[in-house]
Write a protein that binds this DNA or RNA. Sequence first.
DNA 1: GTCTATACGAAGATAGAC
DNA 2: GTCTATCTTCGTATAGAC
Lengths: 188, 188
Amino acid sequence: MKRIPGRTRQRMVDSAVTLLRERGASGVSIDAVLAHSGAPRGSVYHHFPGGRNELVLSAVRQAGNHIGRQINRRPTVGEPHVVLDGFVDYWRRTLTDSGYRSGCPVVALAVDNRGELPEAADAVREIFWAWQEKLRELLIEAGLPTERSKRLAKVAVAAVEGAVVLCRAERSTEPLDVVIEELAPLFQ
Amino acid sequence: MKRIPGRTRQRMVDSAVTLLRERGASGVSIDAVLAHSGAPRGSVYHHFPGGRNELVLSAVRQAGNHIGRQINRRPTVGEPHVVLDGFVDYWRRTLTDSGYRSGCPVVALAVDNRGELPEAADAVREIFWAWQEKLRELLIEAGLPTERSKRLAKVAVAAVEGAVVLCRAERSTEPLDVVIEELAPLFQ
DNA sequence: GTCTATACGAAGATAGAC
DNA sequence: GTCTATCTTCGTATAGAC
């Protein structure tokens, strides 16, 4: 079972993302990542000289970028609220595909912070900012005023992230569905 | 320094709540609670036969009840959106008073779940449900239709909880302020 | 790049004295 | 009710062989 060179690191990061989503930051232990990824123990400090901290940061940054790429729906004129569809559909898929076990890795790192990772707060802030920027640009393209686009982008990220937490708790996509339906009129 | 009987347990729970808010579920270790509360080590399994699990559950339930009690603002006719004021003011105070170190203990337990606490998911669901019920009742009192009150209560909890996460990340109450201002029109 | 072995500390839990 | 061990497990990290 020869492994493809250079892929071990990626598989470890992928596993770290999954664990972060499902179990929270404290669930991303080195042992858990090794067990989940099947990576050889000897690879840990080869691929991540910074140890666990580097692994966790790599995971949240990769996940943040990946999720940000889901925000790409170009709206048709007259329906600005569809700019949220890419983002929202992503979360709906993630929740249902995982049986409501998988949540947002960025929130997980944001609230489970024992101060051991000073860079964690920076990474979280940057990711949330990047998402808001993307949404803001799409809202402006859709014809909304600049300042209002900025505010609604922030509302969207907050409401959707909160809804994802509720969805997991209720084991249903209803919170997300309700949030989007009720928020839609604001985007006219 | 004789301690008042029966208060040690309460101080431990209070400390557990603080640690849950600031460091996440994994930050609520027995050692951390003892250090924070000054409680004697010998008291742990006397007051909490179920060990750490019982302590964490007691903490989130107490905090959930306490926060639920903040939702008590009776609205004046014609301004239904003020039913959110008690809830929102509470979070604003919590965030600023703690220098944005303190977040929501219920969210913390919801996302930092390593499956060691099966009852945690139940507690989280019940608390979120109780908050929504309180808000729903107040919205109905304020004159909103029953079904819509239920939906808006869910939107409010989701948006506010998400905003609290963003507030900590940005070290600012702006996300909460923006969310409330933008959501207000929905409550007419 | 990967392996085994090991050091080191933290954490949960229990036993038994006071 | 509280104290002091102590057991055990787990987690991070390093050393050195292959």
